[in-house]
Amino acid sequence: MPFDTFDFRARTLPMIVVWFPVVLTATLIAAASPAVYRAWTLLPLPLILVLTVLAAHLGRDAGKKVEGPLWASWGGPPATCRLRWTTAPNPILHQSLHANVQSLIGGQLRLPTKEEEAADPLHADQVYETAVRTLIARTSSKDTYPKLKNDLVWYSFRRNLYGLRKVGYILDTLLALASTAVIVTIVRTPFDYTLAVPIVGIFAAIVSAVFFYCVVTADWVRHSADAYADELVKHAHIVASTTVE
């Protein structure tokens, strides 16, 4: 059975990015101290596996908490927005899209017309969300739709990392303060220890904080969300054709 990397890339990797400055500094400390290094290398494999599973759940939970507010600020879930008449750039192509999606969801649930959407936007969005869920279920195979699956992975990665920003800021602050305290201790006392490790700790904390502030933004997440939504909607025609056949 092949290893599914979805959990690792989408959920565990964001936690690794957040904790990387701390782990890097801890590794350098272990390397500089033989006693600590021996304990570090004996870290049992079961503990590593437990931490990996825990990281996956914490990463996903953090992303889910911010997903709702992000969607609200964007005007709704990206895939749902793609089905709205009000945001359709080309009415003719949009009509074709609705026809393909309608063939997927069947006759029990009818997609609203432009007039019906304008009269009751809330109900229209509920229908669109149902249609999107059906389309997602029909395109869940990573072997049949590899690009779509990959776009979903990286959207989830960005969303989860965005949700972990506050944790990242806290860890970076604590690491910078602890490293500064170590430098002061080394300078003012006869404590025999290299300055390189705490300096690296401060540098890693600063780089991480700048990364979260400048790169991990709502726009960064939205770019990936839009890419996934566009790819998902594009497959409506493919899935509809397959269903008819």
Results as ranks from 00 to 15, higher is better:
residue 56 A to R: 11
residue 124 A to N: 08
residue 72 A to I: 03
residue 142 K to E: 07
residue 49 L to T: 01
residue 38 R to H: 07
residue 36 V to Q: 03
residue 96 S to I: 09
residue 77 P to I: 02
residue 94 H to P: 04
residue 128 Y to K: 03
residue 67 E to K: 10
residue 118 A to C: 01
residue 135 L to M: 06
residue 144 T to K: 10
residue 80 T to G: 09
residue 55 A to G: 14
residue 123 H to E: 13
residue 74 W to N: 05
residue 139 T to Q: 04
residue 143 D to A: 08
residue 121 P to G: 12
residue 81 C to S: 12
residue 116 E to N: 15
residue 95 Q to A: 14
residue 73 S to G: 11
residue 102 Q to I: 01
residue 34 P to M: 11
residue 29 I to H: 05
residue 47 L to T: 02
residue 102 Q to K: 12
residue 132 V to S: 05
residue 116 E to Q: 15
residue 93 L to V: 05
residue 109 L to R: 04
residue 61 D to V: 07
residue 127 V to P: 08
residue 126 Q to F: 12
residue 120 D to Y: 06
residue 137 A to P: 00
residue 66 V to A: 14
residue 145 Y to M: 01
residue 114 K to S: 14
residue 24 L to P: 00
residue 31 A to V: 09
residue 122 L to M: 09
residue 69 P to A: 05
residue 132 V to C: 05
residue 116 E to H: 14
residue 37 Y to D: 04
residue 137 A to V: 01
residue 123 H to W: 09
residue 37 Y to S: 11
residue 74 W to R: 06
residue 110 R to D: 02
residue 38 R to L: 06
residue 121 P to H: 11
residue 67 E to W: 05
residue 42 L to W: 11
residue 135 L to S: 08
residue 86 T to N: 05
residue 74 W to L: 15
residue 90 N to M: 03
residue 63 G to F: 07
residue 49 L to H: 07
residue 78 P to W: 12
residue 96 S to Q: 13
residue 98 H to I: 03
residue 40 W to Y: 15
residue 29 I to L: 14
residue 85 W to D: 07
residue 89 P to D: 15
residue 49 L to D: 08
residue 26 A to W: 04
residue 105 I to K: 09
residue 106 G to E: 02
residue 96 S to P: 02
residue 137 A to L: 04
residue 41 T to W: 11
residue 96 S to G: 05
residue 106 G to H: 09
residue 46 P to K: 06
residue 136 I to V: 13
residue 73 S to D: 13
residue 29 I to P: 01
residue 31 A to G: 03
residue 80 T to V: 11
residue 130 T to I: 09
residue 35 A to Y: 11
residue 85 W to G: 04
residue 145 Y to E: 01
residue 96 S to T: 10
residue 133 R to H: 10
